[in-house]
């Protein structure tokens, strides 16, 4: 049935588009946010969601359970690595005495 295939295809691309949107938003945050700590927020959280959405799209495309499972494992491994790297960068910045940006200091 071609209409079903079309629906699945549309769904797949909707996930890619949503994933790309969050990667883009994370990159915008990286440029716009004022200091290392706020930039880490942008990177960890939007990339987590962006990669998750791309993985869901790929899983839909594959239509295979083992590949879907593999994509899930890849997502989880990247999450663990991302959150750990994020902690290490934040801790190194704090230990080096990098002052956090605050809204009051701007007024």
């Amino acid at each position: 049935m071609p209409s079903l295939e079309l629906t699945v295809r549309a769904l797949e691309y909707a996930f890619y588009a949503a994933g790309a949107f969050f990667f883009l938003a994370g990159s915008v945050g990286l440029v716009r946010f004022p200091d290392v700590y706020t930039r880490l927020h942008a990177l960890t959280k939007s990339d987590n969601l962006g990669l998750g959405l791309v993985c869901v799209g790929l899983a839909v495309r594959s239509g295979s359970a083992i590949i879907a499972l593999k994509l899930l494992v890849i997502w989880l491994l990247v999450l663990v690595a991302g959150a750990t790297a994020c902690y290490l960068v934040a801790e190194a910045a704090r230990s080096a005495g990098v002052k956090p940006w605050t809204r009051e200091a701007q007024r």
């Binding site: 938003a25 945050g29 700590y37 969601l49 605050t102």
Partner: peptide, 22 residues
């Protein structure tokens, strides 16, 4: 984690950039 991604994306994209970090 979906809410976290949406939240930070909104803050990054809004022209007023509503953050008040601490």
């Amino acid at each position: 984690s979906v809410l976290g991604g949406v939240d930070v994306a909104m803050r990054a994209l809004k022209p007023s950039m509503p953050i008040d970090p601490r």
